[in-house]
Design a protein around this nucleic acid. Structure first.
Lengths: 249, 249
DNA sequence: CGTAGTTTTGAGTTTTGTCAATAACCGTGG
DNA sequence: CCACGGTTATTGACAAAACTCAAAACTACG
């Protein structure tokens, strides 16, 4: 894939990477994974790591963002709104997703933290300069965007064709998969427990439903012993196979 | 944007381009616009232009496509299906869109011609080789994918939040805009007439509705004198402003 | 002109949304 | 620690929107 003249990324080598990057998920699975130690050092020099409390508006529609960022922890909601206020969440970003449009145009979506979120931010012009210099980096971001497109289209299928019960089941699987990709992939039966990163209202905005409908579907799943709910936000998937069936795939 | 060493695309120069490309929309607004005459000649040497009748399956989910292609005429539906057969159209491709995933993985969607379609196809490995060699080309394809992502997210908003009547109005505006981008942008009031590229059933699959619902909404718009319909497929927008309001933007 | 495939329209059912009341949860300050 | 108020979630009763099934009208095409 890399042309012979291109330097190889150093992501796997023992380690001369900046200390803060060594433990970072973005360095391995995220876009920093394609950088050499030297490039990573440059990048890191201008990076700011910071936490944002739940509910922070990171970006509004039409803003020209000053920073791009890696999501290190937590979940960011991307959303769009109609003039009368109806809101739709059009995407969720988890670690180690790269946040921010590739080019500096106006953002077509607004971004808000759904949970407490930790970001590693870079000045926009630095990212853009490095993307145009380091072909590998642009390529990597390209791949991420392609993945986002696939996810968006999957969600279009869910929004357009599935019933409320199927939508809620699909959502739970989405979160469960992000929480524990291994158990989900190997389809081990053991129950998984996780915190929902979204409120009922947010889930409704994500699924194109009303929050009462979401709540009713949660209750139904609980009555079927497919899930258990504690404190409204802590969910245990008791029967993943059944949940998968109910998601109507 | 282009680094100084990069050759400039020849799209605007008088013309030494292959004859067939001179009139081609893809050469100007599509991805071929970034190529030099020389590069275009290479590309063109391996290109096949061909028409496909309405209803042709170009690609199924999971196929590894042998060709990438520019859409020269007509409309291509991209769709996804649930196991029980429910279908959702996740995207429409018009000229001069570039069709085919950037990398040669399995296609996550199926592609079918909605109308008669004319394609200019290139062997996949050629496209991939040229994309990795010609940075400008990859960049251009990247931009197109970014645009597709924005469109997909717009559609998520429509599917998730809008009522049936708003969905149908939005669809008509989408088609009207593609048919006559100038009139739509300048918002001139004059009526526009065009052929719908999709059947009622297809429109329903695009909007996440049933075809009866779509039909009723068409009738409603006709009763409001917002549109006129002849032979089911020929639509005249009589009142674009009203249609825009009804699309709930 | 007749037939196959679309599209429109109608009547009744199901799903989801709306409005409203109650219950659970969370942080704060006593 | 508990009581309090504000927020969030659940549940119920009813209304509205969209779907289903069925029949009729229209269109395209041989």
């Amino acid at each position: 894939m890399n042309s012979p003249r291109e330097p190889q990324p150093d992501g796997c080598k023992p380690d001369a990477a900046p200390v803060l990057c060594r433990e970072c998920e973005a360095r391995h699975r995220g876009i920093c994974g394609v950088l050499t130690h030297e490039e990573l050092a440059t990048f890191h020099q201008h990076a700011i790591q910071k936490s944002y409390p739940k509910g922070t508006a990171l970006l509004s529609i039409g803003d020209v963002p000053e920073f791009h960022a890696n999501v290190l922890q937590g979940v960011v909601k991307l959303s769009k709104t109609l003039q009368d206020g109806r809101q739709q969440i059009v995407g969720l970003q988890f670690a180690p997703d790269f946040l921010g449009r590739a080019w500096g145009e106006e953002s077509p979506v607004s971004a808000e933290t759904a949970t407490e979120v930790r970001l590693c931010s870079f000045p926009r012009d630095l990212v853009e300069r490095m993307m145009s210099t380091i072909h590998r980096l642009e390529h990597r971001v390209f791949e991420q965007v392609l993945l986002q497109l696939d996810l968006a289209r999957d969600w279009i299928l869910t929004l357009g064709q599935k019933a409320a019960s199927e939508k809620v089941a699909s959502f739970l699987l989405l979160i469960a998969t992000h929480h524990d990709p291994i158990a989900s992939a190997t389809r081990q039966g053991g129950p998984t427990t996780f915190e929902l990163p979204l409120s009922r209202g947010d889930i409704a905005d994500f699924l194109g439903l009303k929050l009462e409908t979401v709540s009713r579907q949660f209750s139904k799943l609980r009555e079927l012993d497919v899930i258990r709910i504690e404190h409204s936000r802590t969910v245990t998937v008791l029967n993943r196979a059944r949940l998968l069936e109910l998601s109507g795939p």
